[in-house]
């Protein structure tokens, strides 16, 4: 399971970086479809770590360790960032038609939202990886 998680996390990081610039990798079509797919993989990542989420949620205000609280808070911010990123991406999509969703708001607002949420999320992903670096090293040692 850990090996699967590790490979999935590497793929998430690589695709996330490729999605940061819509013109870099096979254009807007790839950007929009891969953006939607990465959203699904993000949900899978959350489900794979559900036991930890459940455990910390139950003890968050009583006796959760400080580190777990920081991780939990950061993950909540990441969740908000991902939701905003996907929602704004849907609102400004050009190759996939989401007009039937009628999200409202000006295109400019959604574009600003998409850019800001994606950049802030990238920074949060970096912090998330930094806090789980020991786990990454552990996995790499097993692999090597």
């Amino acid at each position: 399971m850990n090996k699967f998680k590790f490979i999935q996390n590497i793929l998430l990081a690589v695709v996330m970086l490729l999605l940061m610039d819509p013109r870099s990798f096979y254009g807007l079509g790839f950007h929009e479809w891969a953006g939607l797919i990465i959203g699904a993989f993000f949900i899978l990542h959350t489900l794979l770590n559900w036991s930890w989420i459940k455990k910390v949620t139950l003890v968050f205000f009583s006796h959760a360790p400080g580190r777990a609280r920081i991780n939990y808070f950061l993950d909540l911010l990441l969740l908000a960032g991902m939701v905003l990123m996907i929602l704004s991406g849907i609102a400004i999509a050009k190759t996939i038609d989401f007009s039937w969703l009628n999200l409202g708001g000006s295109r400019g607002f959604w574009r600003a939202m998409h850019t800001s949420s994606s950049l802030i999320s990238l920074a949060l992903f970096g912090i998330h990886l930094g806090l789980h670096w020991k786990w990454v090293l552990k996995r790499l040692k097993i692999k090597l």
Partner: peptide
């Protein structure tokens, strides 16, 4: 690619 990027890397 709708004028942005295309099939390039």
């Amino acid at each position: 690619s709708h004028g942005r990027g295309g099939n390039t890397v």
